[in-house]
Simulated assay, not measured.
Amino acid sequence: MPGTEHLTVDRVGATLVLTLNRPEARNALSLPMLAGLHDGWLAADADDDIRSVVLTGAGGCFCSGMDLKALAGRGTRDEAARARFKADPDLHWKAMLRHHRPRKPVIAAVEGPCVAGGTEILQGTDIRVAGRGATFGLFEVRRGLFPIGGSTVRLPRQIPRTHALEMLLTGRPYTADEAGRIGLVGHVVPDGTALDKALEIAELVNGNAPLAVEAVKACVLDAEGLSERDGLALELERGRPVLGTADAREGARAFAEKRPAVYRRA
């Protein structure tokens, strides 16, 4: 099972749980953390027994963004991580889901701060749960910086444009309730229960046919930016092969026989 000093990996049934584990620094992104994230995404996609991924943070915090000192290679004894980033300068973007899209559904379980780079990683996830005390925000403009983790492109596609621009241009913090109202997160739950809710959702996903789940996710992502005509054509291209699978036949039989379906990724 992959993992590093700042990223822990666990299995809960068919769900891989990736935990940002640097609570003393509010889970600020470090080289070992990013290397672990990258490995976690690849491990999930390579293992057909894993049907979903949950991303969360330790110590009541999701992620406070980049640790610039750590990302420069200082403050870590992990020479292997340094070497990996030198060998692949794009590795941090893959880890942050800017240049990599896992084929398995990714569910975020957010407690506490989820700001700057944390909010940027969040936009690469598919389903999002937040504890009521969670906070969100893109603070880069307040510091003369630019949110190059994907937010100027993704955020206006995920929430209404006026809310995206307000978040990007004011750099102000958002409560979980406000993030829920604008659609940045889908569920706001009592503090301390975000992971439980995320695992509950993951279990629902895991009970469905994996080929269908992965094809639906891929189609939604690939249709972004397409015209309706082209998007509908893509839907047929992605959907028709799924309808001809043994799993599709099993789903119909299970429904008729009033029993749980047994999907075999076939």
Rank of each mutant, 00 (worst) to 15 (best):
M1G: 12
L7Y: 03
V9L: 07
R11T: 02
G13D: 14
G13N: 08
A14N: 11
T15G: 01
T15P: 02
T19R: 11
L20I: 09
N27I: 07
L31Y: 02
M33W: 00
D39I: 06
L42T: 12
A43T: 09
D45K: 09
D45V: 02
D48V: 10
D48G: 11
D49H: 14
I50M: 05
T56F: 01
A58L: 04
G59F: 02
D67G: 04
L68R: 11
K69F: 10
G75T: 11
R77W: 04
D78C: 08
A80S: 11
A81T: 09
F85W: 10
K86F: 08
H100W: 06
R101L: 08
R103V: 10
I107G: 02
E111C: 03
C114P: 01
I121Y: 06
L122P: 03
L122D: 01
T125L: 04
D126T: 08
D126G: 11
V129K: 00
A134D: 03
A134N: 05
L138R: 07
F139W: 01
E140D: 15
V141D: 04
G144L: 06
I148Y: 02
G149T: 08
S151L: 13
R157M: 11
P160C: 01
P160G: 05
R161H: 13
T162E: 14
L169M: 14
A176S: 10
E178P: 01
G183M: 00
V185H: 00
V185N: 05
G186I: 01
P190K: 06
A194D: 03
A194Q: 09
D196E: 14
K197V: 15
I201T: 12
I201V: 13
E203F: 03
V205L: 13
L211V: 13
L211G: 15
L211I: 13
L211K: 10
A212P: 02
A215R: 14
V216I: 15
C219L: 13
V220E: 12
E224H: 04
G225R: 04
R229C: 11
G231Y: 06
G231L: 06
L232F: 12
L234Y: 07
R238T: 09
P241W: 06
L243N: 08
G244E: 14
G244I: 05
T245L: 08
D247A: 09
A248M: 13
E250C: 04
E250Q: 12
P260C: 09
Y263L: 06
A266W: 01
